[in-house]
Amino acid sequence: MTALRARAPHAGLALLIAVFAVFFVLPFAGLLERGIGGSGTWDAITSDTALDALVLSLWTSAVALLIAVVAGTPVAYWLTHARFPGKGAVEALIDLPIVLPPTIAGVALLTAFGRKGLLGAPLDDWFGLTLGFSTAAVIMAQLFVGAPFYVRAARAGFGSVDAQYERVAHTLGASRLRAFARIVLPLSWPSLAAGAALCWARALGELGATLIFAGNLQGETQTMPLAILSAFERADGLTAAVALAILLLAVALVALAAFWLLSTRGRGTP
């Protein structure tokens, strides 16, 4: 079997692999080439716009991830074990934002939480609270598109833990919470970590929904993807756009690598 698999690929397949690889690697190469060669790269990276956007992106996506984990974990656990009619519909609804184009998500959020929205209007009338075009809106947009990835992964993780383990833990005197903390959580950890990473990456890259629901105000709602878009739209903005893109890419890579290291070292092999 191994011998068969280790055999060199057929010539046609090899060509396909090569083309595919070039297609995915070349854009990164282009980004780096343009960024290193461009004259204004460093200025663009150290500009106030870039730093404001980076800081905003990092903390809003972190808050969105936190909410997704805190609220999504119990929901995912409940969904894994609950049996009720219409469960499939509920699961599909939770997955919906994954397949929804972000611009639609933005419009939908606006119609619900915007100043004239279903809930937004009464909030504005009674409490003077406006969610749309605020930093809160940025986080809501990120949560809306990112959380389903976490919930989905967590459901898969919880579902892969044999229910027998929990039952045995109960007979050994463990409360539901203790069984969850000592048995379910450690055994589903890899799935939860992967889901959290996906959720955070999706929140960090969120553009369409944020633009429509939160706007594009520097320091308030202008996250890195929005800053890149704004830079690109200016005359001769490509240099700045490339510089910001490289910055975001680097930060994302470092964060994901650190996260991966933490999550594998924290748990050993389950």
Partner: peptide, 12 residues
């Protein structure tokens, strides 16, 4: 004390 058929030893 309950020993289930597949033992269900906690693998981690």
């Amino acid at each position: 004390g309950y020993v289930v058929q597949d033992l269900a030893l906690f693998p981690h």
